[in-house]
Computed example of a mutant assay.
Amino acid sequence: MIDEAQTVVDAGLPGPEARQWAMFAHLSGFLGCLIPFGSLIGPLLVWQLKKDQDPFIDDQGKEALNFQISVALAGLLCVLLMVVVIGFLLIWAVIIGAVILMIIAAIKANEGKAYRYPFCWRIIK
């Protein structure tokens, strides 16, 4: 009988635990719904705690953190633009877009595929 983990290793994909932690890195952005700055703290914690275990977790953790930084900056810009009313509409576009992209990224990471967010400023290399 062939073990699933061995099949994954043979296929060149990350192992199931690495895929799971990469998925958690993307989904941890939802912590911002519960605690202030949680959308930044969540991916940062997952990345810092697990980056040395697997290169896939390191890559996806950085990607998730960079995306959450980009979303935070876009949200800040929307708040500033609320002075001229357009910010009220743009903030909803940012929130909906971020939720959709985080879910897509989590699904791709769980499949073992490295995901790159569009419209992301990659500060952390």
Rank of each mutant, 00 (worst) to 15 (best):
D54M: 04
V99F: 08
G75Q: 01
G15V: 05
G29L: 04
G75A: 06
L13K: 15
Q68T: 01
Q6F: 06
P36H: 07
S70R: 07
A22N: 03
L49H: 02
M82N: 13
K51H: 13
M1R: 13
W47Y: 15
V84M: 14
I124L: 13
V46G: 08
V84W: 10
A64N: 08
Q48D: 12
I100M: 05
M82E: 07
C78R: 03
Q68Y: 01
W121R: 06
F56V: 01
V84Y: 12
F119H: 02
G112C: 12
F119E: 01
M82D: 06
G97T: 00
L40H: 06
G75P: 00
A25I: 08
C33M: 14
A105Y: 08
C33V: 10
G38H: 05
P16A: 11
G12C: 10
S70F: 04
C120H: 08
A25F: 14
C120D: 09
V9D: 14
L31G: 05
L45G: 14
I103E: 05
D52W: 04
L40P: 08
G12L: 11
D52C: 02
D59E: 15
L81Q: 04
L44F: 15
L27D: 11
M23H: 02
H26G: 09
D3S: 15
K125L: 11
D54V: 02
F88P: 12
W47H: 11
L40W: 03
I96M: 03
Q53F: 08
F56Q: 01
N66L: 08
D58S: 12
G112R: 11
V84H: 07
S28H: 09
F37P: 09
M1H: 14
L27C: 07
G112W: 09
L80D: 01
I96C: 02
I123P: 05
K51W: 10
A22I: 05
I69F: 11
A18K: 08
Q53P: 06
C120G: 12
Q48N: 14
F37G: 07
I35K: 12
I96W: 03
I104V: 15
V84T: 15
V99R: 03
V94A: 00
M23V: 03
H26D: 06
A72H: 00
D10I: 02
G38I: 04
G75S: 10
L76P: 04
V9Y: 10
A98G: 02
N110L: 10
Q6H: 10
I104N: 06
R116F: 12
W92D: 00
L77T: 12
Q68G: 02
